[in-house]
């Protein structure tokens, strides 16, 4: 943090302290008492020294914004920030869009912290600048800086269970037929067979019992009669408005991902997948969060 980005002003307590120093100075003057004057001078010098020390405490602090963060509507977005400073820096207060964090010490070892910012609406979260403030050492001055760390946070819709319409009217059945391995199916489908394990199969579908019996790594496969069911799109979601329908899509994506069912998410003309697993779910949630936002 460079010198120019730092602001410094006395706190209310600092002003009170200065007024007391003045009162003591008057007391010393009226009694012509050098020791009382010395105390008043000491308090005045302490005020100046405290200004320097407070400023110095923040000087040279390095802040690094973390990667793009994704959260859910109504929940909080975990934003990561990394702080370092060659000399120890004490008693920091970080504020970002209503979220506060007190940090007793920052030193040479980079310290990564997570600020959880709440967001009410889907889409990009509007973040204020990060305010880094410290009143160390004596609380007489407050030194702060407003840092723009180029933090980016998106809010995905909060998953909400809802009904999906049949996708009978979908025209691309042929494309559907080509997709992936035939046997993959929704967890709710009927158990079809055990097949040998292939790398990449979700852990939840490993036949543990058979493994224990020493029959090798087998994977349970389910038959899914209606493949088009795993193709999620806005048209299929039922809901009063766009947000609700996106929430339904979020629920189904999370559900499929949890069960390890490959699925496709189609939004505004682009299709994601078919794929499954946590990282794909993250991509889908991001896409849901970004839906409707200017690119």
């Amino acid at each position: 943090m460079s010198q120019r980005a730092l602001f410094i002003l006395p706190t209310r307590f600092g002003v009170m302290f200065a007024v007391t120093a003045l009162a003591i100075y008057i007391l010393g003057t009226n009694y012509q008492n050098n020791l009382v004057l010395l105390l008043a001078y000491g308090m005045a010098s302490l005020l100046v020294a405290s200004m320097w020390l407070t400023h110095r405490n923040l000087q040279g602090l390095e802040l690094l914004g973390g990667p793009l963060a994704l959260g859910e509507v109504g929940g909080s977005v975990p934003l990561t920030i990394t702080l370092t400073r060659t000399q120890p820096c004490r008693a920091l207060d970080l504020t970002l869009s209503g979220c506060q964090l007190h940090l007793p010490l920052v030193d040479e070892a980079p310290q990564t912290l997570t600020l959880a910012v709440n967001g009410p609406r889907r889409g990009r979260l509007l973040l204020s600048r990060l305010r880094v403030e410290s009143r160390y050492p004596l609380g007489l001055f407050r030194c702060w800086s407003l840092v723009d760390l180029q933090l980016e946070a998106w809010l995905a819709p909060a998953p909400r269970h809802g009904v999906l319409r049949d996708s009978s009217d979908s025209s691309d059945n042929g494309q559907q037929a080509e997709q992936g391995r035939g046997e993959v199916a929704a967890g709710m489908g009927d158990f079809a067979m055990l097949r040998p394990h292939q790398p990449g199969d979700p852990l939840g579908r490993i036949a543990w019992k058979q493994l224990a019996q020493g029959r090798g790594m087998l994977v349970k496969a389910f038959s899914e009669p209606r493949h088009e069911q795993t193709r999620l799109s806005l048209q299929r979601a039922v809901g009063a408005d766009l947000e609700q329908r996106l929430a339904v899509l979020a629920w189904w994506s999370a559900d499929y991902a949890k069960r390890g069912v490959p699925f496709t998410l189609e939004l505004s003309g682009t299709a994601l997948g078919p794929d499954t697993g946590p990282s794909f779910l993250q991509r889908c949630r991001m896409a849901l969060a970004r839906y409707g936002a200017p690119p």
């Binding site: 007391l27 003057t29 000491g42 010098s45």
Partner: peptide
């Protein structure tokens, strides 16, 4: 102690160079 030490040079200078004002009122 560190803060007081930083304040000390200024304190001594203030004491050495600032003349005592006459009493402002009777105490």
């Amino acid at each position: 102690g560190g803060a007081l030490l930083v304040a000390l040079p200024l304190l001594l200078t203030l004491f050495l160079v600032l003349p005592r004002l006459p009493p402002l009122w009777r105490m």
